[in-house]
Design a protein around this nucleic acid. Structure first.
Length: 289
DNA sequence: CTTACGGCCTGGGTGC
DNA sequence: TGCACCCAGGCCGTAA
């Protein structure tokens, strides 16, 4: 499940090798997850990759034109749940579920592999950085770049559950299920607490916890739960440092209580029932029972 | 307007 | 061996 730290790890790996290289050709397999396959085949060859960036969970490849067409383009890739981007030699064995091949002018190749095909690949015309929109609208703050004031403003006054807010890409771009649960555990906040009901102290703790968890996950090159590998095919190591995610029934590293798993905001949520106190039930919610 | 929720996409893992 | 079922994340339609 590539979230911010995994995408960042891949971006750093690609940024080290791709800039300055030219895309010579594009070959596609199954294309039902690609918005406009022929646009990739027609518009990418000949372009030079000037930089590789992360925008939320998107990878952005900025492309220069070397010929008369001076229009700047960007290639936008979202890895969905099981997407992988790998660089290799063209003669390297082809793993099952590889759906896109980008031939580069140094004789190497970048491949997109995606078992579930929940990812997406598309071309973005001009004005890439701020022009990256999710289908729902503009993306929110970068969790590592946002100031504490900006973060607080994004959560304050919202009556949704904090878990839903952290996962909402229009509030914060790049958070996913793993790092949301880990951040909430570090901040000792129950996932069903309402954003509006968090104290200033709790919001401060959450901001600090989120930044710490994300930076440490990047340092450990991401979490490999199922399919995630970096651009060289190497798994991450942060899954060994998870405190709650995927640890249902195991002991909370802080208080030894048993970690629980419940669905919150439509997602599996792992938390410690002792360290992360559930909010008091409202009169309305209690009446139902 | 905001929020909650169920369904959909796909295929690997599990358990019978 | 086969097969039904669950689950994952993002998005979308619908309802309150």
């Amino acid at each position: 499940m590539p979230e911010l730290p995994e995408v960042e790890t891949i971006v750093r790996g690609l940024q080290a090798v791709l800039p300055g290289k030219r895309i010579m050709g594009v070959r596609l397999g199954i294309t039902d997850f690609i918005e406009d396959p022929s646009a990739l085949e027609e518009q990418l060859p000949g372009r030079r990759i000037s930089s590789v960036r992360r925008y939320g969970k998107f990878l952005v490849f900025d492309l220069d034109s070397l010929s008369g067409d001076s229009r700047r383009l960007a290639l936008l890739i979202h890895l969905g749940m099981t997407g992988q981007l790998l660089t290799c030699k063209p003669e390297a064995p082809i793993a099952a579920h590889t759906h896109a091949y980008f031939a580069l002018d140094d004789g190497s190749e970048m491949r997109y592999r995606d078992i579930r095909r929940f990812g997406s690949i598309r071309i973005l015309a001009e004005g890439a950085p701020s022009g990256v929109l999710s289908p729902l609208g503009p993306l929110g703050l970068d969790p590592l770049e946002a100031t504490e004031e900006e973060f607080r403003a994004g959560i304050n006054g919202r009556h949704a559950r904090i878990k839903a807010l952290l996962l909402d890409q229009r509030v914060l771009r790049g958070m996913g299920n793993i790092y949301t649960d880990e951040s909430l555990w570090h901040a000792k906040i129950h996932p069903t607490r309402l954003g509006a009901k968090l104290s200033a102290r709790e919001l401060h703790g959450l901001y600090v916890a989120m930044r710490r968890v994300l930076s440490q996950a990047i340092r450990f090159r991401g979490s490999s739960i199922s399919d995630y590998v970096d651009s060289k095919g190497t798994p991450g190591k942060f899954q060994q440092r998870h405190c709650v995610y995927g640890r249902k029934g195991k002991k909370c590293p802080r208080c030894a209580a048993m970690i629980r798993r419940e669905t919150v905001a439509g997602r599996s949520s792992y938390f410690c029932p002792k360290c992360q106190r559930a909010p008091k039930k409202t009169r309305k919610a209690r009446r139902k029972h």
